[in-house]
Simulated assay, not measured.
Amino acid sequence: MVPRAYPAPSDPTTTAVPQHSRPASPTRRTTTAVLQHTVRAPTRTEPRLPWTSKLGQVRRWRRLPIQPLHTLVLYWRIKPNHERELTAEAGFPSFSSVRPHYVYSTPSLEHPGMIKINYHGGPPCDPDGHGLVSGGVDAVERVARWIDEFMPGRVETASGPVERVPCMYSMTPDEDFVIDFLGDFGQDMVIGAGFSGHEFKMGPAVGSILAEMAMDGEARTVAEAGVELGHLRINRFDGNPMGNAKDL
């Protein structure tokens, strides 16, 4: 995401972005896994999510404490006559519950008659591995017990979720993002990673921040709004492997 639109170049695999005041190598290229194309620019941006730690090893960056987790997106059947009350139109909220398990949900939206209720977490995994579709039995059982206790009579749990979609988190120890310039590269490399299961809903804001950092050398919009990004810097792990860890 960039804050302004620019004409598309003739090469369909690239997107041109303007040069800023810092000198740049003409051979520097930015690869973004999210956009699935290559961007020629003076600043490299790396939003590679679960692959961040591996990428750091290959490119000899400092190792970031980011652990990929295998998780599941679960869709459950709503019991008859309760479909409307679990929609946003009826006032049903997005929510999270941290005890006894970290469970979260959004109103019934994507699939009529179903609601997404998930367990926040999962076992460590290799993002290049296989078998992500399997597993997750513990998560399903935890969510089913939570539903029966806190939403009795509204959601069908006896037959399990209707749909299980494999997903990955890129977890930091404190579950806060990493948004920063990358070490020895000065302001020529920006990293956004470790979103810990929250990247989708934060995507537009994070994309704007990373674009401003890459193009202007600073995140001006959030600075003008009085938002401090210091607690998202990589150096929060210096001498403290848990970073901004909280006791939930």
Rank of each mutant, 00 (worst) to 15 (best):
V73R: 09
P68L: 03
L229S: 11
P204L: 10
Y104V: 09
G186N: 01
Q187K: 13
H111C: 01
F185E: 13
H70N: 10
M215K: 03
V178M: 10
R233T: 10
G217N: 09
K246W: 08
V178A: 00
I115S: 08
P23R: 14
I179D: 06
R40A: 13
K54V: 06
R77W: 01
R145A: 15
T43P: 09
H20P: 04
W146C: 03
R63G: 04
T52V: 06
Y6V: 11
F195W: 03
L182N: 10
L55K: 05
D184I: 05
R63T: 15
L86V: 11
L64F: 10
H130S: 14
G192E: 05
L72C: 00
I115L: 03
G239W: 04
A5T: 11
L72K: 10
G192P: 02
K54H: 09
D128I: 02
G135T: 03
T157N: 04
L74P: 05
N235W: 08
Q187E: 09
G183E: 14
V58S: 03
H82A: 04
Y169T: 13
V162L: 00
M151H: 12
G230L: 10
V137W: 04
I234S: 07
K246A: 10
R44T: 14
L64Y: 04
P42K: 03
N81M: 02
